[in-house]
Design a protein around this nucleic acid. Structure first.
Length: 829
RNA sequence: GCCUGGGUGGUGGAAUAGGUAGACACAAGGGACUUAAAAUCCCUUGGAGCUCAGCUCCGUGCGAGUUCGAUUCUCGCCCCAGGCACCA
């Protein structure tokens, strides 16, 4: 054994050993309690970054810990391998996306292996493998059959830079999530997944996932955006269909004095044909659309509108309401038409004042007598209150009136109660090459025809040349494009859009249960055993995207009979970012720390240890080179602890007695068991590795102290050996290489990973004496030592009799004494 | 505006059920070993004050409250981060 700690001498050795012994490969075994631990798989961008290292280190600790606790642990890894960067890189480097991707995978797999992560590599796959995406095409066909995949025309988000459509979830503040360039609205034919068919269940379960962080659930609820309200039809003055609006404030209907339409509203064109202000309207609509394109960042935009010349009728007051086109009304939400109640909606108020439209007060605060005159208002009163000037509904509270007015309208078929969601269907068409082809054929005779299941997979052709302008080569690839219609055998063309890569990541976790299965997408027996994922770990950035899509997909797979679960991820841990100098690591800031360099300089164990020790997982981690050195120093100290005492430690078995020991050994014995308890609970209940490591550091410090003061009696050797072995076992999930090496140096033949997790003895935790804090009027005044388990009365007496306490009490009268057994006494005078 | 987190020493962080605020580490300062350096080991380290072996007061973003006792619970505010947003 080396006298000093050289990670290079041991890390590769043990990685190879574990791999040879196949220690991390698992099989389904109903006799064993299973645990499916999963970290979000990476996109093979070239090299792993510190965020990955942190994410996967956290997962690895839990996996190794649970194995030692006797669980049958599934801990797989794979590659989210389709996506745009491969195309861009291929164009730049004049290579092929497939080659670029698979090369990256090879390199990154090596990086993960160098970190000693305990993956079952036999289950590895990349989502760009035909053997994976072929099954995704099957799912698409089954969804098509059920009407869950459909083609529709809609205004979609178009990223000019990426030359593709984006889902709503993939637009962040008006910009593309990938390239951060502005997104424009474009009307296009698109394939959609009908996620809205599951909207209620998706929302429901956000209240039934206790193992998820509150904020992720809140973000999903927010995204789904359910709001209860009423649909109201306003008849046109000139007769005809009438205008349908959605409102959450049916109670304000008597105050609706005009109507606002979105510029894209179909009725606008209709009114336009007949109205006198046709030109003005057309110009306005064009301008409004332009404005939305260039700058959607809301409140900068001045509220503007133009009168259409037409009127509709308020179904309650029967009064004429002028119809305006307004730039702040969006087509995407509700019906694209809004009843304007200027007295009780701030936007309508500003609009009414600007264009001199009538303002009518119909709600007043409950504690107010009399109706505030509309002319005196400085802003809209948006709160609930009591109805006034509202016919038979006057005097009702807002809440009651919403129901009563809606019911009255329903009786006349002019309205009903309804629910609105913000969530839209998931647009999955991507006008990109490097993705899974959508298995659809277009025939002039038969129209849209799904590829028959027997003809799957539709293989993405690899012998294509990338186009220098970045557009997909598929539409110009005749070999792929030209085909025959499966129905009439006539000439036909293939769909050349590919699927959003979030489709792949929506079910990869299920495929890991049976990655070798060829008879279908999922082997039900194994999937039923392993899933759902017991613990999922990844970044918060997928709070809505990947985590919502996966939840939807699992419900679809369930309804198709592929899986038996309602939700894919039982428990979710979202780890914080890795930052340096107060900012996220990025090339532009020049603060990127390369994992390879860190491993080279300090070894994998040190890098892992620092990631765990610097902060608890859910918080951001501030990278500090000095902190890394501190972690290395600790491991070197542990190494020396063994190396310098190897002969003594090897000469005795670990102490297994019940604590009949001299004082300093008893103290070490107790500390040993305290540490086991602390580390076990910190990892198992909270994933707080930082405090677990701190506890082990304390134990190491105490071992050093005991070594200094103690002879080398047989008894002390045994107690020390127990303490040292406890250190090794406790750190083994976090720093597995050094733990394995030290464990073997102590003479063990079997891997430390095969040891059962240590158990603490309650007996060993007990102390003969306990330190009691004594307060006077809630302020700390003295500490006394009493026999453990002393009665309240004894504690009270000991506290009052204490000399220092006597000084504080003086002659004053003791009003009350609060006694907390084994903790504290508080004397109130 | 709404919804989530969060605010503790010079720094990262700890205090898990309302009960010793600052565990563990980093940095800094001092010392030991050494011809010297590195490595290692030991000590000090929230602030202010005092009659300085010790003791007192203050201190967990700010202000109230509940309590014998509040970093922890309640109410009101301030600041920071993230998410959503002319959402009707």
């Amino acid at each position: 054994m080396d006298a000093k700690y050289f990670p290079k001498n041991i890390e590769k050795k043990w990685q190879d050993h574990w791999h040879r012994e196949r220690l991390f490969e698992t099989r389904a075994d109903p006799a064993l309690k299973k645990f499916y631990l999963l970290e979000m798989f990476p996109y093979p961008s070239g090299r792993i970054h510190m965020g990955h290292v942190r994410n996967y280190t956290i997962g690895d600790v839990v996996a190794r810990f649970l194995r030692m606790q006797g669980y049958n642990v599934l801990h797989p890894m794979g590659w989210d391998a389709f996506g745009m960067p491969a195309e861009n890189a291929a164009i730049k480097a004049k290579t092929h996306p497939a080659k670029w991707t698979y090369d990256n995978i090879d390199y990154m797999r090596g990086q993960l292996q160098k970190l000693g992560f305990s993956y079952d590599w036999s289950r590895e796959f990349a989502t760009c493998d035909v053997s994976y995406y072929r099954w995704e095409q099957l799912f698409f066909l089954k969804m098509y059959e059920r009407g869950l995949a459909y083609k529709g025309s809609a205004y979609v988000n178009w990223c000019g830079t990426c030359q593709t459509v984006l889902a709503n979830e993939q637009v962040e503040g008006g910009a593309c999530w990938r390239c951060d360039q502005p997104v424009v609205q474009k009307e296009m034919e698109q394939w959609f997944f009908k996620i809205t068919a599951y909207v209620e269940e998706l929302l429901d379960y956000t209240f039934k996932l206790p193992g998820w962080p509150e904020r992720v659930l809140a973000m999903q609820q927010n995204w789904i955006g359910k709001s209860l309200g009423s649909e109201i039809i306003f008849p046109m003055e000139s007769g005809g269909a009438g205008i349908k609006v959605f409102t959450t404030r049916a109670d304000t209907l008597f105050g609706a004095t005009f109507m606002s339409l979105a510029p894209e509203h179909p009725l606008v064109a209709e009114i336009c044909r007949t109205a006198v202000q046709r030109d003005a309207i057309e110009a306005f609509v064009e301008r409004a659309k332009q404005a939305q394109r260039s700058d959607r960042t809301a409140d900068l935009l001045e509220k503007e509108g133009v009168f259409t010349g037409s009127y509709c009728i308020n179904p309650m007051t029967q009064e004429k309401m002028p119809i305006y086109v307004a730039n702040f009304v969006v087509m995407e939400y509700g019906t694209g038409a809004v009843m304007a109640v200027p007295a009780h909606d701030q936007r309508d108020f500003e609009f009414a004042r600007k264009y001199g439209l009538p303002i009518k007060v119909v709600i007043k605060p409950e504690d107010l007598t009399g109706i505030p005159p509309a002319e005196s208002l400085t802003e809209a009163y948006e709160e609930d209150g009591v109805l006034v000037d509202s016919g038979t509904f006057s005097g009702m509270t807002s809440a009651r009136a919403r129901e009563a007015i809606t019911a009255a309208l329903a009786g006349r078929e002019q309205g009903r109660q309804t629910v609105q969601y913000r969530l839209r269907d998931w647009g999955i068409s991507r006008q990109r090459y490097w993705g899974a082809p959508i298995p659809i054929i277009y025939c002039d005779q038969c129209g849209t025809v799904p590829v028959p299941e027997a003809d799957l997979p539709v293989v993405l052709p690899t012998d294509v040349a990338m186009l220098p302008n970045g557009a997909s080569p598929l539409p110009v690839c005749e070999a792929f494009n030209r085909t025959v219609c499966p129905q009439c055998a006539g000439p036909a063309r293939r769909e050349t859009d590919t699927m959003d890569t979030f489709v792949e990541s929506s079910w990869y976790f299920a495929r890991f249960a049976c990655a070798d299965y060829t008879a279908g997408p999922l082997d039900k027996e194994r999937v039923d055993y392993w899933l759902p994922v017991d613990q999922y770990i990844g970044g918060i950035e997928h709070a809505v995207l990947h985590l919502l899509y996966s939840r939807f997909f699992v419900k679809v797979l369930r309804d198709m009979g592929y899986v038996d679960m309602d939700e894919p991820f039982l428990n979710l841990l979202t780890q914080g970012m890795v930052i340096k100098d107060g900012a996220k690591m990025s090339k532009s800031k020049g603060n990127v720390v390369d994992p390879d360099e860190m491993i080279e300089a300090y070894g994998a164990d040190t890098v892992r240890l620092f990631c765990l020790f610097a902060s608890p997982p859910e918080r951001d981690l501030d990278w500090s080179e000095q902190g890394v050195e501190g972690s290395f120093r600790f491991l070197a100290r542990v190494w020396r602890m063994v190396a310098e005492n190897l002969d003594h430690l090897r000469a005795a078995p670990a102490y297994a007695g019940n604590g009949d020991l001299p004082a300093d050994l008893l103290e070490l014995h107790r500390k040993t068991h305290q540490t086991i308890k602390k580390v076990t609970e910190d990892i198992r209940d909270r994933f707080h590795f930082n405090t677990a490591i701190a506890a082990v550091m304390e134990l190491v410090n105490q071992i050093y102290q005991t070594l200094e003061n103690n002879g080398k009696s047989g008894e002390s050797r045994r107690v020390l050996r127990k303490a040292v072995e406890t250190v090794i076992l406790c750190i083994s999930p976090m720093v597995p290489h050094i733990a394995e090496e030290l464990w073997r140096c102590l003479g063990h033949q079997e891997s430390v990973m095969k040891m059962p997790w240590p158990a603490w003895s309650e007996q060993a935790l007990k102390t003969e004496e306990t330190l009691i804090v004594v307060q006077v009027n809630g302020k700390l005044r003295s500490r006394i030592t009493v026999p453990s388990g002393a009665t309240e009365e004894a504690l009270r007496r000991a506290a009052v009799d204490d000399g220092k306490i006597q000084d504080f009490i003086g002659g004053k009268k003791v009003k009350k004494v609060v006694v907390v057994p084994n903790k504290l006494v508080n004397i109130v005078v």
